[in-house]
Amino acid sequence: MPSQSAPFSPGRRRCLLAAACLPWARPVLAANDAAARKDWPRQRATPAVELVGLDGQPWRLAGARGAPVLLNFWATWCEPCRAEMPALQQLAREHREAGLQLLAVNYKEPEARVRRFLEQTGLALPVLLDREGAAAKSFGVRIFPSTIAIDRRGQAKFVVTGEFDWASAQAARWVAEL
């Protein structure tokens, strides 16, 4: 597992550094940074999500009204997902008093694999199982990780696609919007 101080794998870091040295690549990198967040379309309803947690308890998005929610769609095979999880866990701790619910929604993996992953990494985020991928499909998730931000009224506000530094000041501003 990558360390918390190294948000990118060594290979990805080398690729980004090499690209940053090319003058024509700088605008592309800046555009990708800005494209991490996309506002939820106003005309699009927030899907009604019902999933089961690793604890066996059902979880419904409608039951979370009154609290801001971040649904992080991930998989154990996804390196960027694994890299951002420690920062997500820290974010959840920091905003627990404000009522933030941060849930890791595993995409179509066997429960035993998810449990092994959590045991090996020591991560303690609440995990929901999207066994058939229906929740990911309803939110239009095609890139992992993807995080859906939902405000206290139960309305999806924005989507963050790809690996993101959830320990950043930008992340704190985004969570404050909820």
Rank of each mutant, 00 (worst) to 15 (best):
R60F: 01
Q43P: 02
P58C: 12
G11R: 07
T46I: 06
A35M: 07
D39K: 14
Q43G: 10
L29T: 05
G53S: 15
L16H: 03
F8V: 04
A34N: 12
P58F: 06
C21A: 14
A6E: 10
W24H: 05
L22K: 06
A45M: 04
A48F: 00
L16K: 01
V52T: 15
R37C: 06
W59A: 04
L54E: 13
K38G: 07
A19W: 11
L54P: 11
R37A: 10
F8N: 07
Q43V: 10
A18W: 11
P58T: 08
P41T: 04
A45T: 02
A35S: 09
A45E: 08
D55Q: 14
A19P: 04
R26D: 03
P47E: 03
W40R: 03
W59E: 01
A20G: 15
G56T: 15
D55N: 15
L22I: 08
R37V: 13
G53T: 14
R12Q: 13
D39F: 01
R26M: 09
L29N: 04
L54K: 13
G11D: 10
A19N: 07
S5A: 11
P41N: 05
W40L: 03
A31E: 11
G53K: 11
L16F: 08
L51G: 04
T46A: 02
P41I: 03
P23W: 12
P10G: 05
G11S: 07
D33I: 13
W40Q: 03
D33H: 14
A19Y: 08
Q57M: 14
F8K: 04
R14F: 06
E50W: 07
V49M: 05
L61D: 00
R60D: 01
L29A: 04
G56P: 15
G11A: 09
A31R: 13
L51H: 01
G53W: 07
C15L: 11
D33K: 15
P47A: 00
L54Y: 13
W59G: 02
Q57N: 15
L22S: 05
V49T: 12
P7C: 02
A20D: 10
A35W: 05
R14L: 10
P58D: 08
Q57P: 11
A25S: 09
F8R: 07
E50Y: 05
W59M: 04
D33L: 15
D55F: 14
G56C: 15
N32A: 14
T46P: 00
V28N: 08
R13G: 00
V49R: 03
P23N: 12
D39Y: 00
